[in-house]
Design a protein around this nucleic acid. Sequence first.
DNA 1: ACAAAAGTGTTCTTAATACACCCATGT
DNA 2: ACATGGGTGTATTAAGAACACTTTTGT
Lengths: 226, 226
Amino acid sequence: MRLNNKLYENQGVHVISSIFTVENGKTKVLLIKRKNDPYKDMWALVGGALYNNETLDNGVKREIEEKSGLKNIELHQFGVYDELGLTNETNMRMISIGYLAVVDSKKAEIIKENRTTLDAEWFDIDNIPKLAFKHNEILNGALTKLKELIVQTNILKSLLPSEFTMPELQKIFEGILNKEFDRRNFRKKIISLGVVEDTNKEVNLNGKRPAKLYKFKNKIEVKKVL
Amino acid sequence: MRLNNKLYENQGVHVISSIFTVENGKTKVLLIKRKNDPYKDMWALVGGALYNNETLDNGVKREIEEKSGLKNIELHQFGVYDELGLTNETNMRMISIGYLAVVDSKKAEIIKENRTTLDAEWFDIDNIPKLAFKHNEILNGALTKLKELIVQTNILKSLLPSEFTMPELQKIFEGILNKEFDRRNFRKKIISLGVVEDTNKEVNLNGKRPAKLYKFKNKIEVKKVL
DNA sequence: ACAAAAGTGTTCTTAATACACCCATGT
DNA sequence: ACATGGGTGTATTAAGAACACTTTTGT
């Protein structure tokens, strides 16, 4: 845990990101293979130790860029996890702060290797190996949060062109929620959620009947229960 | 920031709790007055630095007990906040992890002073002074989360007897959400949310018609939007 | 003219909202 | 008998779920 490196002097805080994509109706998450101990050679979520002199936001973005090459992605913080008893040293407390993001794997150029990683790969979320640290638990938390965010925010923006059709959006929802929807009811529901708006344009994507184009709203109001 | 104390060696993580109560339809939060710099003599949320060798859960409970005397309270973690540039030292990064809890101020014996605090007081949430650190921001986050939790969990358990009436529950909801409800519709809604269940008992609280008793469910299912 | 993908509308049921009347008790 | 707080019911409107037909286009 590199206590001799000045930047890690006040170590004990990890920023850990679950970076999701959806490909052919399958939700996937980016994992990297660790080069060093602890958990050498194991797959892990993207992340690492926060430096002493940086904000959370800087830290999580720096870690993502270093270990995956991804830049300018929108992050959502969702939880904090204890990571105690990692080593035999006493007085060694570690916590992991969980973030999640959604990116389009087709637009992303993923770096495969860096100073501390051996490989990087998109894993189907129902085929995840045993991960380093508490990353399986963190990933589960991220997935739960992701399912909430897609109905409350425009987090899926990055997975779609700036204007998109309902069938395209529906396929992504079905991939993430692992559930199928009725075409007619899905459109009504999404519009009533207030996350998208009609552009009054149409596009012919597949040589069949043209589809209407929608776009994400910038301001999204979450409905209250009471 | 006591770098000479071994327990704070890996300092940089604060656990900060917004401890709420509701009294006479008013939501209140417990604040403590700081004895030391930084922010000497200012009011602040209950909390402090996590030790190196403790879990988050231990740390937040220890801080609460030391600074308020409260024990065995149920905590909900809701967010992480940067607290950069606190001192002139370089390489000084601090983050605050936000927790919230609900307690019954009438049952709670609050200690007024300790090693690092001068006073402790319940403050009406629409009369909060400028607080130490980013505590005003953290408190706002806590309030937002509290409003979500009361419709999804049994977090209000601590504010009510184990069996309670709908009018009692309604007053608390109205205090927290700062909104009034129709008696008939409130009962229907709360039951449909699935947070309480009927005990088939009645009680006479005020010498008028007896009221039905309800209790919180242990397992509460949150309804999904999609 | 037909197959494929996309759009829209209707019925039925369930949940929200608004509102009015009856019940149990103490004085 | 009446005032007070508490319980229940109904009518109207809005949202969810289930389901079928029509439109556009390329071959």
